[in-house]
């Protein structure tokens, strides 16, 4: 994880930064979509706002792990974090009301706004058959985020990309590609 001392992280300082760029500056959080959707659902059931410390205590989660989930949700535009609280965004409310496949479409649209996903999409566009090998992508990710662990970024790009049906990955051929066949 990239915030060894989660307790001193930026949650108590200022909520004024634009969420996406803040989150993106730290690379992609190592977190799955299910946890992010669960957080949004939980926040909604609490009236849309909760103190981050209380949330971590209630979930019996490490504070740093809780922040990772929140950072993921923030990067996707589903929550924001004024002061020490986490607050659901209108888009988060919408996700919570949506059915399974509509959620995927919303997340897909959000991923398309994240510069890392844009860079990966352009990178694939320029490749033969819009495919890259695992090693080629790792190299690209290391170039895009030189201070991050490329393997970890790879995992998140694959997982979020698969969920949103934006990217596909075949583990047998180690081939990463643009998922163009889905009927969006």
């Amino acid at each position: 994880m990239d915030h060894p001392d989660g307790a001193n992280s930026n949650s108590n300082t200022s909520g004024a930064q634009p969420p996406a760029s803040t989150a993106e500056a730290h690379g992609l959080p190592q977190i799955g979509i299910s946890e992010i959707l669960g957080l949004v659902e939980l926040l909604k059931s609490k009236g849309g706002r909760e103190d981050i410390y209380k949330l971590a205590a209630e979930l019996k989660m490490e504070f740093g792990d809780t922040l990772t989930v929140i950072r993921g949700a923030e990067l996707l535009g589903l929550v924001h974090t004024p002061g020490g609280d986490v607050v659901i965004e209108a888009l988060g409310e919408k996700v919570s009301r949506s059915r399974i496949n509509d959620r995927k479409k919303i997340i897909c649209e959000q991923l398309k706004k994240i510069s890392l996903f844009q860079s990966v999409t352009h990178f694939l566009h320029d490749m033969d058959e819009q495919r890259a090998t695992r090693d080629q992508l790792l190299e690209k990710l290391a170039e895009l985020l030189p201070n991050e662990n490329a393997e970890q970024t790879f995992q998140t790009v694959v997982n979020w990309g698969r969920y949103a049906e934006l990217f596909g990955y075949n583990g047998d051929s180690e081939s990463f590609y643009l998922d163009t066949e889905s009927g969006k």
Binding site: G32, S34, N101, N159, Y163, G168, G171, S182
Partner: peptide
């Protein structure tokens, strides 16, 4: 696979998936 929201994961192996997936 579509109904449970797993479109896009067809060729993934279990080891590549989170518990939720």
């Amino acid at each position: 696979i579509d109904k449970v929201g797993l479109d896009g994961y067809e060729e993934a192996y279990p080891r590549e998936l989170s518990g939720g997936m």
